[in-house]
Design a protein around this nucleic acid. Sequence first.
RNA 1: GCACCGGUAGCUCAGCGGAUAGAGCGUUGCCCUCCGGAGGCAAAGGUCGUAGGUUCAAAUCCUGUCCGGUGCGCCA
Length: 579
Amino acid sequence: MLNIFREIISEVIRESLSHDEQSPSLHDILIGLPNENRGDLYTNAAMIFAKRIGANPRELAARICDELLKSDFVASAEVAGPGFVNFNLNLSAWHAVINLPIKYKNNYSVCNIGKNEKVNVEFVSANPTGPLHTGHARNAVFGSVVANLLQKIGYLVTKEFYINDMGNQVKSLARSVYLRYKEKLGYKIQESDFTDDMYIGEYVKDIAENVVQKYGNSMLDKEEDQYIEELSNFSIKNVMDNILDDLDYIGVKMDVFTSEKEVCTSGTLEEAFKILTEKGCIYDGVIDKPKGIDIPDWEPRKQKIFASTKYGDDLDRPVQKSDGSNTYFAGDIAYHLDKIKRGFMKMINILGADHNGYVKRLQAAVSALSDGKAEVSVKLYQLVNFLENGVPVRMSKRSGNFITLREVVDRVGRDATRFMMISRDHNVMIDFDFVKVCEYSMENPLFYIQYAYARICSVFKYSLKIWPEINDDMLVECSKCCLTDKAEIDLIKLLCFWPDHVSSAAKSVEPHKIPYYLREIAAKFHALWNAGKLNTALRFIDERDKDSTMARLALLKATASVIEDGFAILGITPMQEMR
RNA sequence: GCACCGGUAGCUCAGCGGAUAGAGCGUUGCCCUCCGGAGGCAAAGGUCGUAGGUUCAAAUCCUGUCCGGUGCGCCA
């Protein structure tokens, strides 16, 4: 619907542009809801484009008004202030909007801004050394919703998990499992046998049990260098199975898992080094000591370094340690080359805010590898603070007493967890209060939206008892002339902007806009519900008047459809009743 | 020292170039002959951390500055 008006406005601007200038795309034209008493819709396009055209904004606005008025949908239009165009629609325009979500269902918000371009969304990518915890929960939900949104606007999305199955942490895991394994077989093990880098969660004992099942006591007499490889692989497999279950538990399904080890042994790493060396941005040198922080045992060390400052980083970064082995960064460079080779020119990585120092070097590497053709956008999300009725829950990773993703979901449910994790801008810390998240109150927007949906379902249940024959096609076809009240039109306006909001949330990678908007829709619905109590003419069901009931049911159907679409994006199941 | 993020109503947060800055909670006062009151309506409450700058227009963009969080050589 809004695009009809965008076309008209765009046409006016196009006529005024000289031929060599690019005409504005429809997405560049803002149409919004103005404040009360200024009309139904407004656009600032005249002011935005006046400068480029060299025209007077008010004159351009006047021309836009003239063209808008030619549309059957437009009742009136006027220039206001420095060049705003405010315009009002005929009721028939709003009534036509109602049909769209009913007819197109989840496709109502689909568009093709992405033009089927491939996008890789890498998220979670937890170390395979233990179960997912709370930080991963935010990561998982954020990543999956971003993927859903990008899909909506026409990108071909691949959801990917990078398995860090190399390096010391994997060996530590194997050593930890080995200790528990010996314990299972009757050896006395002290807590002090576990060094700081080792893992002491209960899951380590579970893996050890599996080792006993599979290997019996055949591992017992082996030296570390004999068991470490076998046990690492076995442990990683166990932990990854667990992580997959955890992801499933929170409603996340990955498309691709890529192993760091495979990337690093497939020749991609050498290829990446070759490309970067040919570009002259790999050299042997010494990193300067960072200023302003104390590193007591600092000493200069010669190592292989990537000149990431050439591509906007603050410091050059080592790709090899002084003993000649590769750093984690080296593997990650190879991994991103692998993504590029698989055809991803657009990549999104979801990382915790504690990785902020890593962003620039990664972008530098991708830029260098692809001559600036590929781009990786890193979305950092802030911490989640867990509270128990306002009191912070203490966590310590070392003691193994951190909260796992599974515990959170067990406690408050999958939908509540997902909603809470996605309801804030990723740049903002979340206070996740176990008590409040479960409350049935206004402090819990999820409940409020679910309640709206359940009420709509309830109305349909009731009305179908009276007229069992009513179906979606009839709701699309029926006359909506009786829908004239402000409360009704207000709700329709919100439904009208739904596709706009989805694409704007997707383009800016800001999924939290979805829950906020759904809350607004729910609020308008609840207002309408209550309006029917004061004014019986506004009640949804009038047993003596099937026609006006159908019109109202159509509005409710459209509302329910948008809520369903929004929940699908968020990965949440709408509830038909709240009991 | 440098980098990234935040600083908007008593509290938790939206808004991120547009016309009188919004919502929930909390406070105060109203609304059930109801298709689910687990709701709704209204009032009070703000020089958008601060100082400059750009613009017809700044909470929004730029620069400085203050406060809070995070990170900064062979951890991955």
